[in-house]
Simulated scan of single mutants.
Amino acid sequence: MSNPPLHALAYVSRISAPLSRAKLNEIVAGAIEFNGQNDLSGALIFDGTSFFQYIEGRESDLASAYERICASRSHVVLLELLNGAVPVRRFAGWEMFYAESAPSGIEGLNWLPGREPSDSARRDIVASSLRFFWQSFQEKQGVIDLA
């Protein structure tokens, strides 16, 4: 019997109000717990104004996670960047990799409805954002391989 196909979801959103350290810790802890219970892995980056998240797992589990994410009052203007099949897990073993960054251009991904870039431009922006994710992840792990 084969494993169900993997899917991934990436989105960007703006915070709805300034977040305290305690609230950020609560958000990350909740994501780690939920993802661990649902065999999801992924990464979350917060730059002080915007979230960028990539999560991966079975499609049905991702749907449950996305419902939870959309219901959160911590953020607004949530825009889905990627939602589809992926060949492998990029964050295997990580219920939720979390990093904070200085303002990094994440807010540039947060397009106004009706003002989204073309599909090819969107793919390029998402790909560069995922490279940023992966680089941040590897740096945190002490593994630097930018090839």
Rank of each mutant, 00 (worst) to 15 (best):
S2V: 01
S2Q: 10
S2G: 11
N3L: 10
N3K: 14
N3S: 15
P4H: 10
Y11F: 08
V12E: 01
V12C: 10
S13W: 01
S13Q: 06
R14E: 11
I15V: 12
S16Y: 02
S16E: 07
A17D: 11
A17L: 04
L19I: 04
S20V: 01
S20P: 02
R21N: 10
K23E: 13
K23Q: 14
K23H: 10
K23I: 03
N25L: 06
N25P: 01
E26D: 12
E26P: 05
E26K: 14
I27L: 09
A29M: 04
G30A: 12
A31Y: 03
A31R: 04
I32R: 15
I32G: 07
I32Q: 15
E33F: 08
F34D: 07
F34C: 04
F34L: 06
G36F: 04
Q37R: 15
Q37V: 00
N38C: 03
N38Y: 09
D39V: 00
G42D: 05
F46N: 03
F46P: 06
G48Q: 00
F52E: 03
I55V: 14
E56S: 04
R58Q: 12
S60F: 04
D61A: 15
L62S: 03
S64R: 14
S64T: 02
S64C: 08
A65T: 04
A65Q: 14
A65M: 11
Y66A: 11
Y66T: 01
E67V: 04
E67H: 09
E67I: 03
I69G: 12
S72E: 05
S72F: 02
S74Q: 12
E80A: 01
N83R: 10
N83S: 09
P87E: 08
P87K: 06
V88P: 02
V88N: 15
F91Y: 15
A92W: 04
G93V: 00
W94R: 11
W94F: 09
W94A: 03
E95I: 00
M96Q: 11
M96G: 10
F97A: 14
Y98G: 11
A99L: 08
A99P: 03
A99N: 09
S101L: 07
A102V: 00
P103V: 01
G105D: 05
I106P: 09
N110G: 04
N110L: 00
L112Q: 10
G114W: 00
G114F: 00
G114S: 05
P117C: 03
P117G: 06
D119A: 15
S120W: 08
R122P: 03
D124H: 09
V126T: 14
A127H: 11
A127W: 06
L130N: 13
L130W: 05
F132K: 14
F132Q: 13
F133E: 08
F133Y: 04
F133M: 15
F133T: 07
W134D: 12
Q135M: 09
Q138L: 13
E139S: 14
Q141N: 13
Q141D: 08
G142Q: 07
V143Q: 12
I144N: 15
I144M: 13
L146F: 09
